Structure formats: C-alpha cells, structure tokens
Simulated assay, not measured.
Amino acid sequence: MLMSSSDKAATLMYGPNGFRIVKPGHFVVCAQSGVPVPLEELRYWSVERQEPYASAELSTQRALQDL
C-alpha cells in the first residue's frame, strides 16, 4: 500500500520568521500535547528547542517549564 505525505509527519527546521520543510509531510506533532498540527495551521514553535506547538497557551506552558 502506498502512503501519501498526508499520512506522515513532516520534519521542519524552525526559524524566527518561519520554518523550512526538511522531510515532507502534512502535519507536525505538538511537543506539549502530542496532537497533530496541520502545517497550514502551524503558528507557534520554539526556535531554541526546535519544537512545534498547537496553540499559544501550550507554547507558554512549555516556556514556563524552564523557569
């Protein structure tokens, strides 16, 4: 059975103004909650940790863990 890129998670490099696709896919997995985030909906990530987040709240929760 052939799998399309929509069945696989993408691998991204996160920068301060955007991200670059390293390995094609349709989504990334939120580092805080584990839920899949479609690339077209991805708005929050950490450049330092190279992690994606599903929401601003989850991004803030993750940042507060290091304090």
Rank of each mutant, 00 (worst) to 15 (best):
E41L: 08
E51A: 12
G15H: 10
E48G: 04
P24C: 09
A31V: 11
R20I: 14
T11Q: 07
R62I: 04
S59D: 02
R20L: 13
D66F: 10
S5A: 14
L39H: 01
V28H: 00
G18P: 13
A54T: 03
L39W: 02
R43L: 07
P16Q: 15
F19R: 11
D7K: 07
K8V: 13
G15V: 08
S6A: 15
P38V: 02
Q50P: 02
E57G: 04
P16C: 13
S59H: 06
T11P: 03
A9W: 02
V22A: 15
P38F: 00
C30R: 02
S6H: 11
V37P: 03
K8Q: 15
K23W: 03
M13E: 15
D66W: 05
G18K: 01
A10W: 00
P24M: 07
L64E: 09
L58D: 06
Q65D: 13
S6L: 14
S46W: 00
Y14H: 11
R43S: 11
V29Y: 01
S4I: 12
P36Y: 01
S4H: 12
S59Y: 06
W45Q: 01
S33R: 10
V35I: 11
Y44F: 07
Y53A: 07
M13L: 15
A31L: 10
E40D: 14
G34M: 07
V29E: 05
Y53W: 00
P36R: 06
R62H: 07
M3F: 05
Y44V: 06
V37H: 00
S55Q: 01
Q65A: 12
P16A: 15
E48T: 07
L42C: 02
M13G: 14
R49Y: 03
H26D: 09
R49E: 10
K8S: 15
Q61H: 07
E48C: 09
Q32T: 12
E57S: 08
V22D: 09
L2G: 13
V22S: 11
T60P: 02
D66I: 07
A63F: 07
H26V: 05
A10M: 03
W45P: 01
V35K: 11
R49Q: 11
R62C: 10
P16H: 12
A56V: 03
A9T: 11
A63K: 02
A54G: 05
E51V: 08
S55T: 08
P36D: 01
E48Y: 05
S33A: 12
S33Q: 06
I21K: 10
P52M: 00
E40S: 10
A9S: 14
F19G: 10
H26E: 12
R43Y: 06
Y44E: 05
S59Q: 09
G34T: 12
K23N: 07
A54D: 09
L42D: 00
C30S: 09
P52T: 01
L12V: 05
P36Q: 02
F27G: 01
S46A: 08
K23H: 09
F27D: 00
F27I: 04
R43V: 10
I21V: 14
G15Q: 11
Q50G: 00
L64F: 05
S5V: 14
F27S: 03
L67F: 05
M13I: 13
P24H: 07
M13K: 13
S59E: 11
